[in-house]
Amino acid sequence: MIKHHPSDALLAQYCNASLPASLSVAVAIHLEMCECCHAKVKRLEAQNAELIFAQPQSAIDEELSADAMSLLAAITENDDVDDVYEVQPQTVAITKQYSYQLPRALARIPHSKFMQLGKISRSRIGLEDGALRSSLLHIAAGGEIPEHTHTGFELTLLLDGEFSDEEGDYVAGDFMWLDGRHQHTPITKDGCLCYTVVSSALHFNKGLSKLLNPIGSLIY
């Protein structure tokens, strides 16, 4: 059962289309997996629609730019209906042992080949999103990420499998937002695939992994 969800503020930003692309994708994936948050978003979208259409048309027109008005006019004057296409399921094969079906929100977004370091593999998601970096992160069975904290924020959405850290156990659909106040050591018994978004480099706290800190800004 999913225990970790986006905040209400994040869901509101998603409904207002004010999130960066990588975070919007994360919320969209979570909504595919979580009926509770999906219902919240439907209510928020209905409330937004009511607020907009409750305004006089003159007030709506004042809020729209000339370009937006032109686009809206072009859309509404055309009675053609676009064909609805089906999104074909996309599968990623990380090794012969591990393959996963991607969520719908990621099916049409390109990603790089997986780069592997021990039991950890990472593939960059092809989103141009400023300083934010989004990835598919795979940890093979018995693997862990050394203890670290964050110089920015780290969003982790568990897509498949399980992992645990000092705070507890996580299942597919769990949505975790961490920053410099947190430090943890994710470890998985059976393996997992995550969608991650980071705004800056991780900071490793112990052992040989600390050697990565001087080049952390280059590899985050």
Rank of each mutant, 00 (worst) to 15 (best):
K210H: 07
S134G: 06
R181F: 10
L19G: 00
V171L: 07
G168F: 14
P103Y: 04
A172W: 03
N213A: 08
G152Q: 02
L132V: 13
F175H: 00
G216Q: 05
L218T: 02
L71C: 10
K206P: 07
K40I: 01
S200Y: 12
S200M: 09
M1G: 08
Q47W: 03
P89G: 11
A107G: 11
T76V: 15
S217D: 06
I187K: 15
V197E: 06
A9K: 13
L211G: 00
F53S: 12
V87K: 07
D169M: 11
Q55L: 14
S99G: 04
G161F: 10
S7G: 01
D79Y: 12
H138C: 00
L202Q: 07
L23F: 13
L157I: 01
A46L: 09
I29R: 01
D61F: 11
I60L: 09
A12M: 01
I187E: 13
S24M: 10
L132S: 11
A74V: 06
E166K: 12
K119A: 13
S164D: 07
S58I: 02
W177L: 14
R108E: 15
I215F: 11
A9I: 06
C15F: 10
R43Y: 00
R133S: 13
A141G: 10
D165E: 05
I2D: 07
G207A: 04
M33V: 07
S22K: 00
G143V: 04
L137N: 01
A107Q: 15
S209D: 00
L218F: 09
A68H: 14
V198T: 15
Y98T: 03
R122E: 14
Q88G: 10
G173N: 04
S58V: 05
P20A: 08
A46R: 03
E86G: 13
A17R: 14
L44K: 02
I60Q: 02
S135D: 10
M115E: 15
A140V: 00
A107F: 14
L158H: 09
D82S: 10
G118C: 11
A68G: 11
P56Q: 02
G161Q: 09
D165H: 05
L127M: 03
L31C: 07
G142D: 00
F153Q: 00
D179E: 01
E166F: 02
T151Y: 12
G207E: 06
P89M: 10
A141F: 02
H111Q: 03
L64G: 04
